[in-house]
């Protein structure tokens, strides 16, 4: 099936991109890697008249880290580059893990972390861990720049808080707390290539007596947007992480979900796996956090 016609623009600056998008109006779409957008266009899900490609905008492909500012992943930073980045692997292993578990080699060499977030699929592999880390998105639009928490960004399947004409230029992640670790685990029918049926991202921080000091848990693909398992977090915060407390929390995590039956998994399976993956993700994060003395 050939791709229907559209106009294509490759602005050099974010401001130029915003102007082009404003001129295009509702028929314009932003493209980063194109691995979702071009599929939707080819199969006639959307019919944009104009595409504004972001790849020629210098600097947007950057992944930068500093101990003061934390991590910034630009809008056109490739999934493969995020997965391979040494600061990401060192300070945000769950973020690297999630990028590395997204789709296949080819898509990771084309697609972007920010694009994965902006498509706002409930199963977006990169969302749960970034949410757990308290990430924010940086936005530029006709009204100027703003930023918002990623938690406020997702509004429904394929829906975000972006206003018409706005572009996400980066996702920023604060420095993780001391003695903390992240983990992302997902399950899908075919193990690798396909969209996740369940994904769990956690950020766990320990106190000096190895009790749970802080915990954020997000479950993907089990509700219209990735959901926070606040009840589960409350079970563990201030407590020791034992098999039984973690299991009790993970049972709470499943209660935060509203899974559906679809081609990828049944609602029942998703509900059960939300518990299983939460246990594994917390234990995985615990193991890594325990290695950090302070």
């Amino acid at each position: 099936m050939p791709i229907p016609r559209f106009d294509y623009f490759a602005p050099r600056t974010v401001d130029e991109a915003v102007n082009l998008l404003a001129q295009a109006g509702p028929d314009g779409r932003v493209m980063a890697g194109g691995t979702d957008l071009l599929v939707k266009i080819r199969f006639r899900v959307i019919h944009p008249a104009a595409i504004v490609g972001l790849k020629k905008i210098e600097g947007l492909e950057r992944i930068s880290f500093s101990r003061n500012k934390g991590l910034t992943i630009g809008a056109t930073a490739l999934l493969a580059d995020v997965a391979a980045s040494s600061p990401v692997r060192r300070y945000y292993p769950g973020v690297a893990q999630a990028a590395d578990q997204t789709a296949n080699v080819q898509v990771r060499n084309m697609g972007t972390v920010v694009g994965n977030l902006c498509n706002a699929s409930p199963s977006a592999d990169n969302a749960p861990t970034l949410l757990a880390l308290g990430a924010r998105v940086r936005i530029t639009g006709p009204g100027g720049q703003r930023s918002m928490s990623l938690e406020d960004f997702f509004r429904g399947p394929g829906m975000t808080a972006l206003e018409p004409g706005e572009i996400v230029t980066a996702v920023t992640v604060p420095l993780p707390p001391p003695r903390s670790a992240t983990a992302y685990l997902s399950l899908s029918a075919r193990a690798k290539l396909d969209c996740s049926a369940v994904g769990v991202g956690v950020m766990l921080a320990l106190d000096d007596r190895d009790r749970c000091k802080d915990l954020r848990i997000f479950v993907g693909a089990c509700a219209p947007i990735p959901v926070r398992a606040g009840g589960a977090e409350q079970v563990l915060i201030g407590e020791k992480l034992t098999d039984s407390t973690v299991e009790q929390a993970a049972l709470e995590a499943a209660k935060a979900t509203q899974p559906i039956d679809d081609v990828r998994a049944s609602a029942d399976y998703r509900y059960k796996m939300a518990t299983v993956l939460t246990i594994r993700a917390i234990m995985d994060a615990r193991k890594r956090a325990l290695r950090k003395k302070n």
Partner: peptide
């Protein structure tokens, strides 16, 4: 699949202009 600047990509999802 082809190599684009040394990376394997899907040529069906790469615009020629890009």
């Amino acid at each position: 699949t082809v190599m684009l600047d040394g990376r394997a990509v899907s040529s069906c999802l790469t615009l020629a202009v890009e």
